[in-house]
Design a protein around this nucleic acid. Structure first.
Lengths: 196, 196
DNA sequence: GGCGTCAACTTACCATCAGTAAGTTCGGTC
DNA sequence: GACCGAACTTACTGATGGTAAGTTGACGCC
């Protein structure tokens, strides 16, 4: 099997196994066996156990970024800020629903590995930065100082993550409802920043 | 040295070492050496490496609970909801500032260990439950359905955590400012729930 | 004052698993 | 049909989590 294809397969399976058993409890041979190869091949491709986890996380990060960008694209650049904001939040909850594995992985493996922790943090930073960029484009928010806006964006990122976790314990809550909770809580505060 | 005292010493040092190097990179002998005993004694007292981490986290959870309760106590039960709310948020940021070690530990070791992840989650749940209980006492929120209120509480917990992390990258932000960001963002949404 | 006993602690060991060195196989290319 | 490089394996090492079997010493008790 060509390398690129094998790597993709390993990543898919590793994400699954890590999510099931946790990083620590998973051995490289567990994964190798399930893929149908032997350990050294995985070391050849990913360097170490942490390297493999890192690759899984990086993959998830890219997928989330693509999904978020698509959502904003879909709503159009000239839509009112609230609509853009809502589209991004909604895309997040839909992404989580579709990639439950990746979410469990990230949720559970906050940082077994010294490398993983910053990487997971980098997912949040990616989302913060993207949200900042979107807000910065809105003329209504032009006057708001950077630092304050950054703080608000952090509130949003934290709120989304926590509500997503809460949803896993409350399966009745739809993505729509989750979106509404975040938007309605935070929007009023954000709205107060707008002139008038 | 009597057991209770030795256990406390081990916990203090373990929290330090775990926070410094990360859970995985820390060996039981690192800790034993720094304490001035040998490995098996720590196993005798805490059962396993995960058991030791769990004990560290549980300790931090208790400390946070005590700090939060003290803050609410201090403000009085009849204070307006916003005042009580603000006191809790502020206590959180002050706690984080005083217990940077514990916060790094929890932040970094989201879940090396299968046992640790639910325990860290239980800290958030402890804070959610306490906040829920406080809100439920407020007559103004009596009409709000449980599930919606739960969602709002999750937003608050997530916002606090994320802003706390953000602060570690932005050392200029005071606890007062962090409190203001969370309260001003979320309060407007919460206020909208109040009748009138 | 010796004797038992229990808590605090150590020495010496095992088992597992991350990581590696040295191949082997095989498909394509000249 | 000899060469070469990519994909892959066998067989090993070393570190470290965890444990079994002591040792030491303080304290109570007759």
């Amino acid at each position: 099997m060509p390398r690129a294809q094998r790597e993709e397969q390993i990543l898919r399976i590793a994400e699954e196994v890590f999510a099931e058993r946790g990083f620590q409890a998973t051995t490289m041979e567990d994964i190798a066996e399930r893929v149908g190869v032997t350990k050294p091949l995985i070391y050849e491709y990913f360097g170490s156990k942490e390297g493999l986890l890192s690759a899984c996380i990086t993959r998830a990060r890219t997928q989330l970024r693509v999904a978020t960008e698509a959502a904003w694209q879909g709503v159009g650049a000239e839509a009112p800020l609230e609509v853009v904001f809502r589209a991004g939040v909604r895309a997040f909850f839909e992404f989580i629903e579709e990639h439950a594995n990746a979410f469990v992985l990230i949720q559970q493996e906050g940082a077994v590995a010294s490398q993983a922790s910053p990487l997971i943090e980098s997912i949040r930073e990616q989302q913060s930065a993207a949200t900042m960029a979107t807000f910065r484009k809105a003329p209504a928010l032009a006057e708001v100082p950077d630092r304050l806006l950054e703080g608000y964006v952090e509130v949003i990122i934290g709120a989304c993550e926590r509500v997503a976790v809460w949803r896993t314990r409350r399966p009745g809550v739809s993505t729509q409802e989750a979106t509404d909770i975040v938007v309605s809580t935070v929007w009023a505060g954000l709205d107060a920043l707008l002139p008038g």
